[in-house]
């Protein structure tokens, strides 16, 4: 490339090759190429590269690809079932523990100070505790893989649609 004219012409090569330039610019490229061997050589090589790329053999997945994937998924399903069972028994046990703790705490409280201002505070705490275990079952399945939502900084090939979708996915799964 010798001058700015050549740079401009080279910038048009892809669309020139695809025949998608306006007739005006196309004529400009034609005229330039007729008198510039350097650009002509670049264009021919470029066309050759494109041709080679389009004719690269297409690779195929191995024959057991789908069966391997499906058995992985089957394992995931089983793990999820076990996690759910574990989770629900865990939350039940945790619930009993909290209830037992509260009874003891209230008992101690009453013993120390029969007209306690803390009482209402304890009740609202307890109400807050009850909500969490119910939600955890659902989010376990849907959003267990946080890496699906990570394209932002670590991966430059990014798509805001995917990000916003992931966010709405979390909202949906939390709501269910």
């Amino acid at each position: 490339m010798q001058n700015t004219d050549c740079t401009f012409i080279c910038e048009q090569f892809t669309e020139y090759h695809e025949n998608s330039l306006s007739s005006e610019i196309r004529a400009q490229v034609d005229t330039h190429l007729a008198s510039c061997p350097a650009c002509t050589e670049i264009f021919h090589k470029l066309a050759e590269v494109i041709d080679t790329l389009h004719n690269l053999p297409t690779l195929k997945a191995s024959t057991d690809f789908t069966s391997t994937l499906l058995s992985r998924i089957e394992t995931l399903k089983q793990e999820t079932v076990w996690q759910k069972i574990y989770q629900s028994s865990y939350t039940r046990v945790a619930g009993y523990a909290i209830a037992a703790g509260l009874i003891v705490a209230i008992g101690i409280n009453i013993m120390i100070d029969p007209i306690s201002p803390m009482k209402s505070g304890l009740q609202s705490n307890f109400a807050g505790e009850q909500v969490n275990p119910n939600q955890s079952d659902e989010s376990l399945v849907e959003v267990s893989d946080s890496s699906a939502n990570q394209p932002a900084d670590s991966l430059t090939l990014q798509n805001p649609t995917i990000n916003s979708q992931s966010q709405s996915m979390q909202l949906v799964s939390g709501k269910k």
């Binding site: 690779l59 690809f65 994937l69 998924i73 995931l76 849907e142 893989d145 699906a148 992931s166």
Partner: peptide, 20 residues
């Protein structure tokens, strides 16, 4: 490459509702 593509489908399976 096959591992990555397996992982891709695995993500699709687990996060199917992320697709709009």
């Amino acid at each position: 490459a096959e591992d990555m593509v397996q992982e891709t489908f695995f993500k699709v399976y687990k996060n199917k509702h992320a697709y709009r």
